[in-house]
């Protein structure tokens, strides 16, 4: 995880790797799900800015290869649960 200089532009998390291929339009309504996470499948890699022990860093899932990882999504800071 490399140290990041905080700037005014707000960076955000991004998916890494191949985005789903665009389907050729067939006239059918497009029903494209971005979800690729499923048990038994490779966890989608991502890269996101983070706060960690007093500094700002980037966190990349693939940097944790070889380790068990728990990812916890939650609705928001300062929420009540």
């Amino acid at each position: 995880m490399e140290e990041q200089k905080p700037g005014c532009a707000r960076p955000t998390g991004a998916r890494l790797g191949q985005p789903a291929e665009k389907k050729v339009l067939t006239g059918e309504p497009e029903e494209e799900s971005m979800v690729t996470a499923r048990v038994g499948m490779k966890a989608p890699d991502f890269d996101a800015p983070a706060y960690f022990k007093g500094g700002f860093t980037q966190v990349k899932l693939s940097d944790f290869a070889g380790k068990w990882v728990m990812i916890c999504f939650y609705p928001g800071d300062f929420t009540f649960v």
Binding site: T12, R15, Y51
Partner: peptide
């Protein structure tokens, strides 16, 4: 004690279906 990541545009959350 662990990194608190930011996903402002929800791009990571979308891929994970959350």
């Amino acid at each position: 004690p662990f990194p608190m990541a930011s996903d402002g545009a929800g791009q990571v959350g979308k891929v994970y279906g959350v």
